[in-house]
Design a protein around this nucleic acid. Structure first.
Lengths: 202, 202, 202, 202
DNA sequence: AATGAATGAGTTTTCATTCAT
DNA sequence: GATGAATGAAAACTCATTCAT
């Protein structure tokens, strides 16, 4: 009997090899041979399991989104107050894993690729909307729905902005600093909202 | 070998064709033949003027950065107060020209490519540092240098974040809204700083 | 290495799967994986029994020729007069089995392949000579050896020609019609020969 | 200025190289590299002009059918009586060019391939119907439409049958002999029909 | 200057065959 | 005997780049 259920194990390995290779060689320069070498298998095997380069890339993005989602869920499950939920969301976007240069490179590559692939684009939209809705619902504990939406929007943009800077400076960025600034931004949003509420109340 | 004579006009045309083609076909899928077709010339001619695909891509990024720089200079030249300077910086990042889907696609492509190309990376760094320094110096009129640096940092990140969202939703974004939120963020930074100053002063 | 034991049953199944697959996917596009899938076994097993793709194809042709031969023998065994022998030969080439689209496709494929394979080519020659000799000996009852050879030749060509038309129109052909026309041709050959014999005799 | 209108010239050359290569290596074993080598160009060039292997094969068949058609037209243009027309049709199928082993191999290959390609299949049908209709109309000068149709059918089948034998024995066949037998068949059809007409008339 | 024909290296993909289990 | 995972050689196809005209 041959080894059973190799499919998922292999796929996972190839996706990880793809992420490493994207970072090592660049997305545009990436070849199936690179991924195969990184995974320590023949080129044929990747096609055997994934079918094509496009498929491999799709799986890789799916993996990245999924991983981020799981980190978020793990952090959220331990949060009870809205404030803790906001912190959890911020932190999950700047974990050590998410800030690994390889992962950052891969994410950026997929932003590019998603523009040309309906399924990838769809996934990114879902993720984006989910982030926005998570943030908004947490902010609502401290301000009106309208303001909460705006606060969520700027917070999401800040997350993306810091992350994009991480791409630019390639790994030199300080996760701790990014998280600190973001938490301060959140606090400021809440504080400002409550000041306005107070002055309205007068 | 190329690059002399009445080249500039041609070069400019090829760069614009490259930007269009990047948007139309995607950066990874871009071929010299695409650019040539878009520009209405033969493939040989682009090589004649630009030398290689890499050179074309370099010129294209240089063009994008230059254009952004010129918009900024134009806006800054009319600004006198620090507040006006901050507004000018924000507005220059969200002009109609900068938000064109083609331009947005091209910028993103270059973020990716810059990771593998020392010259491109260098250009991006210069731009990034210049933005940071422009913002910081304007904020310094309202707060301590340390706080100004932080305010500049978050403002720059917000700019990038909103811009990245524009990539995701491809042109559907509302420049006016982005500008409004950003200006509000700036105002908030200043206001918070002055409140703290006031309370410190007591 | 393969080929011993209870293999024959398996071999037969693989050959039939090959015939089906040739028709379904085309000879050029045929892969071992196709045949394995059609036979409901693993790719390895076919190699185990047949050794190689070439071997499988050889066996398949051998099977086709053998089947045709058996049909002919069965029909001939019931024939006593030369006329009946001629009818038997004709009919055996247009049985329902022989006219099945799968079988027709496979035969044509082997005509092509035989050109490049000495053993296959040899088999086809043997079949061809046997057909010619069967026809000639039957015709000899009605005409001179020389004329019998010519009559046999044109009859054999007609058989092949009708069969080739069956390839072209893929199964839409009317076996009954082909048989009728062929029998009429045979009758015409005999009649013409006897007329000439009669007028010679005068 | 570059050489103009190379397209058609090249295409033609590649088609001829394909025919040679099919004969030399076999249809199934044929690679683009073979054709390129035979044509004395790089593999890329064939793709440049033909797009794909399938396209090359399509063009090749189109070429074969076209060539046969032109031979037929040339022969028919010199024929005035029905008898001459019948001779012309027969001869055009057994010219030296048509009986070249390369051409015969290619024709057979296309019979196979046509089964899987709608456009090729369509072309073969057209050719087949045209042959049938040419024969029928010539026979009509000597017999009833119904009988003419049957005579045409058997004549067409004989043509194909002799041609198929040429495949089998690879070039050893005697065109002259085939033509003689076919002409005799035609004469016999006419003669038989007129005998029957005569005996009906009594 | 300008063309586009031609090249050839490089990439994806396919598939017969082998082999550990 | 049987599987299907794995290989690797070979094939199709792509494309930046060169070059004769």
């Amino acid at each position: 009997m041959p080894k059973i259920g190799m499919g998922p194990v292999r796929k996972r390995a190839f996706v990880k090899a793809a992420i490493s290779s994207i970072h090592a060689k660049g997305f545009m320069q990436l070849t199936m041979a690179d991924v195969a070498r990184e995974a320590g298998v023949s080129t044929g095997l990747i096609h055997h399991y994934l079918g094509s380069k496009d498929q491999l890339l799709n799986e890789t993005m799916r993996y990245l989104l999924n991983e981020l989602q799981q980190i978020l869920q793990a952090k959220l499950s331990g949060a009870t107050t809205p404030q803790e939920r906001l912190d959890a969301i911020i932190e999950s976007n700047f974990t050590k894993e998410q800030m690994r240069p390889e992962v950052v490179s891969a994410w950026l590559a997929f932003y590019v690729q998603a523009q040309r692939s309906e399924p990838l684009n769809h996934l990114l939209h879902i993720y984006s909307r989910r982030l926005q809705s998570n943030l908004t619902s947490a902010f609502k504990a401290h301000m009106s729905p309208t303001k909460a939406r705006l606060a969520a929007e700027s917070t999401a943009a800040l997350i993306d902005g810091f992350w994009l800077k991480a791409v630019l400076v390639q790994g030199v960025i300080n996760h701790k600093h990014a998280v600190k600034v973001l938490k301060k931004h959140v606090a400021q949003q809440i504080q400002t909202a409550e000041q306005e509420k107070a002055s309205d109340g007068i």
